[in-house]
Amino acid sequence: MARFKTRTDRVLDICVWTAPALVSGLFLWLVGDLAVRGCGAFWPGESEASGFFRLTEPLELVIKFLTGAPERAGRSGGIGPILVSTGLILMVCMSMAIPFGLGTALLLSEFVAPQNRFGRIVRRSLDVLAGVPSIVFGLFGNAVFSQFLGLRFSILSGGLTLACMVLPLLIRSTEEALNAVCPTQRHAATALGFSRWATVFQIILPQATPGVVVGLVLGIGRALAETAALIFTSGYVDRMPRSVFDSGRSLSIHIYDLSMNVAGGNQNAYASALVLITVLALINAATNWLATRFLQREAGNF
């Protein structure tokens, strides 16, 4: 059949192959550019070491960069405390956003009819929430979490603000994933006399896991990438945080500060951006791996 291609078919085929090529091209351009500029930070300058030691030097520099504290306002030194703060912010954010996101999505797709007024109001307000600019979230988080709840500038208040931010994305994608579960499965579960609880936790959620993971990955990406909302909430302090009640600078704020606020910070800004993308790649790989592993285990149970 493929022999009788019409012109429309051919155009469509070309489109389907060009679009990803274009996107990949732009992505590789961007990341390649970052890599070239960022790697300079790990390239040893003039040094006496030679031979074998010269080869290990970049590795040492990478380790030093990942664990060291920022010096000279971040222009030299490393990003150790900033990585820790970023991790803590992400944990707070996700530990709040996951229960609320999953719960709301479950309610919207499993417990209320599409025409239900409560469901529609929640859905619409979430869409509006998705459009709130991050800087307004920042000021809002500052007013509510930092001042009203008395958390001041802290990782906790930053994480909570981020949780509000990623919630719409998380809920929408989870909802899509839940809707994707074939309705016959639900009918079968009901016919077999399963309780709602069992249907949700044993039939629907396991099947929707890959979709939920997409939402999580998008949410984590959004949270890691956020700058404006965190300047006013988790703050700017680049010291190692002692707890989530300390202020801590996130990686994206560090990049912003070095590239836009501190003269001569470009080198480390690019290097930090490179680290951020690497971290993200690792998180994505881990989430995907976990998801497929659990899926296989689930399939084995049947």
């Binding site: 707070v92 530990s95 996951i98 229960p99 609880w197 396991p206």
Partner: peptide
Amino acid sequence: MCIPFQIRSYIALACLLSLFT
């Protein structure tokens, strides 16, 4: 009752985090 593993791990993670916090 048997809650699948990944759901349990979500719940465990959330509990752990709130305890930690």
